[in-house]
Amino acid sequence: MIEAHELTKRYGDKTAVDHVSFTIAPGTVTGFLGPNGAGKSTTMRMIVGLDRPTAGTVTVNGKPYAKHRNPLSEVGALLDAKAVHTGRSARSHLRTMAATHNISTKRVDEVIEMTGLTGVAHKRVGGFSLGMGQRLGIASAMLGDPRTLILDEPVNGLDPEGVQWVRQLVRLLAGEGRTVFLSSHLMSEMSQTADQLLVIGRGRIIAAGPVQEVIDSVIGATVRVRSPRLPELARLLERDGVTLTPADDGAIDLHGLTPAQVGDTAAAHGIPIHELSPQKASLEDAYMNLTQDAVEYHSHATAAAPVATDTSAGTATQKGQNR
């Protein structure tokens, strides 16, 4: 369980994280999504006490991270694959970490095996590829057998096999009742691993909730309709809040209506329907839509209107989530 309340981090006059509040429920995989520089890493560093919040608080399992007696068994963090001395072997690195918590060498060898590093355990980390560095980072996160894992861009630099492995590991850990909080700037990665999403843009939470709910809330449900009397049906369905977009092959896509509403209307007027199918908005579409505001705000920093819109939207989602 990770709870952030109004968490804020400023560097000089630049606000990296801006009044962020969220709760990561136990036993879930929560994806932390946002473009590069959105504040993901800063937020994660504040969770494990590496960076001090300018304002606000964040707790892990009810207490600030630093107040835990055995922090490594509360939270395992992969924050930076390069948080390792390059002159030390992978095994020595893990042993230095393990020693602080009196964790046995047996456990060190366990996590080495679990992460597939057995063959290079005695090699110096300086010669490691990015993928091997990530595996070592995951190994040190697993060292204390923690209830909560924080993984910052865990698949970064991994080959397809490694990516697959991380996904399976994350699901396995969540299945064991652990909390996993992982970040990515890739929406597609999140669809594979996460069940909850926390979307951040320019230091603010812009959406939160189950993956599909977040996507739907942004794109809205789309229904594809095909009918020989399509123009007639379209006229009947046209009203406020509904948009009609012609699809390429003579069908239309309706936003703002459920398939049931469309079907009922058609039946009431005796209009035959040849296709009526809910369309899943793609993650990438949702993501682009979500972060668009943040990006626009970035390039027109002086324009008043987008700023106001952005602010109110951000506040609204945050409040909704706090309830």
Partner: peptide
């Protein structure tokens, strides 16, 4: 929508 907390379906797994 008390988004994150409520939608934790895996809350089957208690702490």
């Amino acid at each position: 929508m008390s988004a994150v907390a409520a939608a934790a379906p895996a809350a089957v797994v208690p702490e």
